[in-house]
């Protein structure tokens, strides 16, 4: 599974939504996530991709596309 698919599947699972509802432009807010859900998702992504995501980076991640791009760039810079 590529990064985009892994991200999408984690979000779908955590927020209990259909993966097809998740487009690149979808925000966490669109999926009904509150701040605790977002924190939980960030932790799940950290775990999945073996990363530490600092709070100041997490604050800038709003859409699925942001998420995928951020993780890609972090993985490439490793």
């Amino acid at each position: 599974m590529d990064i985009a698919e892994r991200v999408r599947s984690i979000i779908a699972e955590r927020l209990n939504v259909n993966p097809e509802e998740i487009t690149l432009e979808t925000t966490f807010e669109d999926l009904g996530a509150d701040s605790l859900d977002v924190m939980d998702l960030i932790m799940e992504l950290e775990q999945e991709f073996d990363l530490e995501i600092p709070d100041e980076d997490a604050e800038n991640i709003r859409t699925i596309e942001d998420t995928i791009n951020y993780i890609r760039s972090r993985i490439q810079s490793q």
């Binding site: 605790l36 924190m39 939980d40 932790m43 775990q47 530490e52």
Partner: peptide, 10 residues
């Protein structure tokens, strides 16, 4: 400590 769930307390 950074792995504790945000849902732990609630």
């Amino acid at each position: 400590p950074n792995r504790v769930s945000p849902f732990f307390i609630p």
